[in-house]
Amino acid sequence: MNQLKLKPLTKLEQTMNIIQIDGYGFLIPNSPSRYRGNCSKEWGCFVTGETKGLNHSKAEKAGLTKGTFVEMAICQISTKVLTFEPNYVNEEFLEIWGIPVGGEMKDQFHEKASELSTFLMHRESKDKFQLLTEQFVKNALNSWASEGMKTDFNSYSFEKIRESYNSKIFRFEMTPTEGKHGPYFYIAGSYREPNGELEIAALKAVKEIQSNSNNCQDRRLIENQAKCFAAIAESENQSRVPVSQLNATNSKQLKSAKA
């Protein structure tokens, strides 16, 4: 199986990258600042670091829990097919990159500072967020139609949707619900207009971050997805039986039936 090989970072690429705008500082860390949404009924919060073997109380004391919500200026949202065994195999996730402006992910920094951060959403959280942002597509369609449909809709809508993301503050919040296996949490999404100098500065920083596609890249997830695609392709190849083999099998079955 071929594995994706990524070049090691050079010294220049490892240099700390700070974006300063309107008296605010936003860090682009060398290693992605990763968080996870723990949606089990005992947790219902965002976490960071290694929490295996810990309960919520111990993780909180260790400083690994990061609250029940985060508000962000969104930099990038993309789809990834990932495997985290044993629970998730070749499963689709949404990869969220943004600058926290509210919640405990933000509170760990000075009031005039924050950093580019990332987390994943899947299943119910992912599906509901995608439904929420469908409104951006509808708005783009209406705008395109009102302007006379003079350009290609795909390129037009891409820019309009990006404008929508770049002008809003998004909130991701753990929300309790009930399923066939009992209570659990999912991450509910919402958005609003920016409020205050920090949020306006963060939205300006987003545009600078978007100008370099390498800023919102998690090398571990890139490698994970490459392995998933390779495994899927291998599985599909194994499931394809040559026509000649099928014909031979069918012929044998017919002869057996006649005998």
Rank of each mutant, 00 (worst) to 15 (best):
M1S: 14
P8F: 09
L9C: 03
L9W: 07
T10N: 07
T10R: 06
K11G: 13
L12K: 10
E13S: 06
Q14P: 00
T15M: 11
M16Q: 10
N17H: 09
Q20N: 13
D22C: 03
Y24D: 09
L27W: 04
I28W: 04
I28L: 07
S31V: 15
R34T: 07
Y35S: 07
G37N: 12
T48G: 15
G49C: 01
T51R: 02
K52Q: 09
K52R: 13
N55C: 05
A59H: 02
K61A: 02
T68Y: 03
F69L: 09
M72Q: 05
A73W: 04
I77W: 08
S78M: 15
V81F: 10
L82A: 04
F84M: 04
E85S: 14
N87H: 15
Y88K: 03
V89L: 14
N90V: 03
E92S: 08
E95V: 04
W97H: 04
P100G: 02
T118K: 02
F119G: 13
F119H: 14
R123Y: 15
R123S: 15
L131D: 12
L132Y: 06
K138F: 03
A145V: 12
S146I: 01
S146D: 13
S146K: 03
E147W: 01
N154W: 10
E159Y: 05
R162Q: 07
N166Q: 12
K168Y: 05
I169G: 06
E173I: 15
T175V: 11
E178L: 08
K180F: 08
F185T: 01
I187C: 09
A188K: 15
G189K: 02
S190E: 15
S190I: 10
N195Y: 00
I200R: 09
A201W: 08
V206T: 03
Q210M: 14
N212T: 08
S213W: 06
C216N: 07
C216T: 14
Q217P: 08
R219K: 09
L221R: 06
E223A: 12
K227C: 08
A230C: 08
A230K: 03
N237I: 00
R240A: 11
P242E: 09
V243M: 08
L246E: 11
T249R: 14
L254T: 14
